[in-house]
Amino acid sequence: MVSPAASPALPPLAAPSRSRAGKRLSIVAPCFNEQEVLDLFFDRIEDELSRLGVDYEIVCVNDGSRDHTLAVLLRRHQSDPRVKVINLARNFGKETALSAGLDAATGDMVVPIDVDLQDPPELIGSFVEAWENGADVAYGVRVDRKADSPLKRFTAQGFYRAFNRLSDVDLPYNAGDFRLMDRRVVEVLRQLPERNRFMKGLFAWVGFRQEAIPYARPERAAGTSSWRYWKLWNFALDGITSFSTAPIRVWSYVGLAAGVLAAAWAGMIILRTLLFGRDVPGYPSLMVVILLGFGLQMLAIGALGEYVARIYQEVKGRPLYVVMDRYGFGSNEDAGA
């Protein structure tokens, strides 16, 4: 019997190469009370973009700033039309402001970046090179976070571990929003309709060819961060509930375990009464069991409430954001998305 000829091995698929020639790069920069650092940010990022030799635009989203951030942005827009400004009607939060910038960006490559310069603009050149070599997403990974406090580094690592254990989406450790995305990746992100947006998770969820670029995270160039620990806690809670049902599913197992323990405890009481012929005293232990059960019920209701609240936000169908003014886009008409 003659065995059939073995099929020739197929060569691995090579990632397509691209050229930056004739392409446009969009920078998306959410801004909230950043007047002290904006001039430094523009000086550094414009130096880097001019070195790259690409056509570019800088889309700045003023997210309801209460200082002179808008005035600084408009001054820059007047001196350089490539600086475009979206002025939101109020503070909607960074994730929403970032989404507004992505909706407005027109580039073949799009780079979200924080204006506090903890995302070094000089890394954009490495992002573009990775894109030219076929990466659809090139994201920065913070290999040195000495600028952050020990507590923040510890809690951040704990969040990444918890997220990746509870979610089906693999969130790269120490990766923020700072990245370059191909146009088709941005178009997919624009199709996602949810109001409770955890952008790091959405960036990972879309997939495509992604490449990590390591960098050392410096301190803020000026000003102070608006992120406090309570706000970071709520942000982490939004992230986990947006990509995992484990916090609510676990209560099925907790209930099962509690039922088994209760049945075992009841059996022990009955057996002890039959053998020794006396009641089992235990008012303190009874109160402990009752209070423990009540506490577990409250935790379960709280977990359920987190998901119900998010369903409530989604079904109302309100616009994700409201734009009060646009500068540099050809019209200043109010709009939402």
Rank of each mutant, 00 (worst) to 15 (best):
R195Y: 11
F163Q: 01
F41L: 14
G282I: 04
R153P: 01
R249V: 02
G267R: 12
N196V: 13
I86N: 12
L74C: 10
P218S: 08
G282F: 04
G305R: 06
V61S: 07
W265P: 03
A21G: 01
A246S: 06
G64Y: 03
R272D: 03
A138I: 04
Y283K: 13
M268W: 12
T273L: 05
K200F: 06
E333I: 06
G328S: 02
W131H: 14
R44I: 13
A89I: 06
A89S: 11
A5W: 05
R179A: 12
W265S: 09
Q313Y: 09
V188T: 08
P12M: 01
R318G: 07
R153S: 06
I248S: 13
N62Q: 01
G125T: 05
V206D: 13
G305I: 05
A104S: 13
D182L: 00
T245I: 08
N164A: 13
K84W: 03
G330D: 11
S26W: 15
D80L: 12
K316F: 05
E306R: 15
Y56H: 08
G293M: 10
W230S: 13
A97E: 01
W233G: 03
I86T: 12
G330H: 13
L70I: 05
E122P: 04
A335Q: 06
A6P: 01
M181A: 12
L192A: 15
